[in-house]
Amino acid sequence: MSLLTVSNLAKRYRRRGRPFPAVDDVSFEVNPAETLALAGPSGSGKSTIARLVLRLIEPDAGSIEFEGADFLALSGAALRTRRARLQMVFQDPLAAFNPRATVARVLDDPLRIHGLASRTERPRRIAALLERVGLETGLAGRAIHEISGGQRQRVAIARAIATKPSLIVLDEAVSALDVSVRGQILELLLDLQRQERIAYLFISHDLGVIRAVAHRVVILEAGRIAESGDARAVIANPQSAIGKALVAATPRLHGNTAS
């Protein structure tokens, strides 16, 4: 049974007075412990889908079922409870966090808000979270703006897993990182997936990264699904024009190695 089922999702914005379909009749499923990647050029609707799934914005049409419940029908306390199971990590953790907050404060919030640990328990839980994402526990007292980009993204992942989610939406979560750091963060994400059976909705413009970590991929163009399937198969042999264009545009180290 799928963890997340998105059916006929639609969202229109208005651009210069005209309705503009950002997401148009999009359907997909994410299974437990699976990574589904959303790929596509700028403006293809990737990030709008992420926001819809997180209910940061409301769709014009369609349904979202999460953990067997109608996610769009939830409100108030029921929505807050369910949201603990659905977390997010964005591209720029410096923009996502209060820069003056300490690492400990950033991790304390979800534990406190979702009532996951008592005040006396929380420092121990924060230390455990830091260790889980490969950070020194001594980092707890540091301010978010004082630590490196890679450390900050680890803190973002620690915050996301604090509420024991079944699904994490990763919106270009490794795009701003140096390649050496990026590899470490991807390894961490795969390790968490294996240990905790977390599913990822992995949004990225980078087919190389998608090919390395995703099980399946959905390729979007202008808000619609152009093609989808096994990540390696689709990238090795794209069928849609946009899929072919994305593969052709990906820089290669060794000339024409693909297809």
Binding site: S180, E187, R211, A212, V213, I235, V247, P251, R252, L253
Partner: peptide
């Protein structure tokens, strides 16, 4: 080695 290209071995 850190480059994840279309010819790289998947981490998965």
């Amino acid at each position: 080695d850190a480059h994840l290209g279309l010819d790289a071995g998947p981490l998965l």
